[in-house]
């Protein structure tokens, strides 16, 4: 096991941790977004989806635990990378210009990451750790988003998620060593499409709810 810890804590090993956990979150986001689309088909469709999901019972618990583990690894490794990279250049440049490699996503990765973490905690408090005998998840959404303040926070947060994915998607393939001139352009294009789909798909839910109620 010693060899494993030693290898995974190198600069390349930490990259692999970020890539694999990030891939897990992309899968989660795809499923979450697909489920949320039922919202546009009305209360019954959405509640039916929620019930089907909860009927899975232990499977859901396992998935939740896996997601929690992924989050712990992703956030803690990301924090280590952020502080180490800050220390790797003690004196900063007086003039610092990009040569064109960086994107808005790559520049802001740690910051969007920490903000998304705060958002996820808020989101879990408002939709996960609630008394479901008092209100249905549908009502929880309607109540939350009737507050313009929360609606704006959610819209802003999912835009941050899109920006994070803009860099994270292609980057995870690069980290896993999957970069070839034949398919990297396609990976980059799919990444941008995924980022836009996630941001727009989630952002329209509060807008839609406010419009219909």
């Amino acid at each position: 096991m010693n060899w494993f810890v030693q290898n995974i804590s190198t600069a390349v090993g930490k990259k692999l941790l970020m890539a694999i956990t990030g891939l897990g979150f992309l899968g989660f986001i795809a499923v979450h977004l697909a489920g949320n689309i039922t919202f546009y088909f009305g209360k019954d469709a959405f509640l039916h989806y929620v019930e089907t999901l909860h009927a899975l019972g232990p499977v859901i618990v396992i998935v939740e635990l896996v997601l929690l583990a992924l989050a712990v690894i992703h956030v803690s490794t990301g924090t280590v990378l952020f502080t180490r990279n800050w220390q790797a250049r003690k004196t900063r440049y007086a003039v610092d210009k990009s040569a064109g490699g960086r994107t808005i996503g790559s520049r802001t990765m740690p910051y969007t990451g920490f903000l998304i973490l705060l958002f996820v905690i808020l989101h879990l408090c408002q939709f996960h750790f609630i008394d479901r005998t008092q209100q249905t998840p549908y009502d929880a959404a309607v109540n939350t988003f009737s507050n313009i303040f929360y609606a704006l926070i959610y819209i802003g947060a999912v835009i941050l998620v899109g920006i994070h994915i803009r860099h994270g998607f292609w980057s995870l393939f690069q980290s896993l060593g999957l970069n070839h001139e034949k398919y990297m352009p396609a990976i980059r294009a799919v990444g941008i499409a995924f980022a836009i789909a996630a941001a727009v798909g989630f952002a329209f839910i509060p807008i839609y709810i406010r419009a219909v109620t």
Binding site: K15, L81, A88, S98, A99, G101, R107
Partner: peptide, 16 residues
């Protein structure tokens, strides 16, 4: 790592 270089986050500034 031991020499104190930072960790790559795929910014791609190097190749540029």
């Amino acid at each position: 790592d031991e020499l104190g270089f930072g960790n790559c986050s795929n910014e791609a500034e190097c190749e540029a």
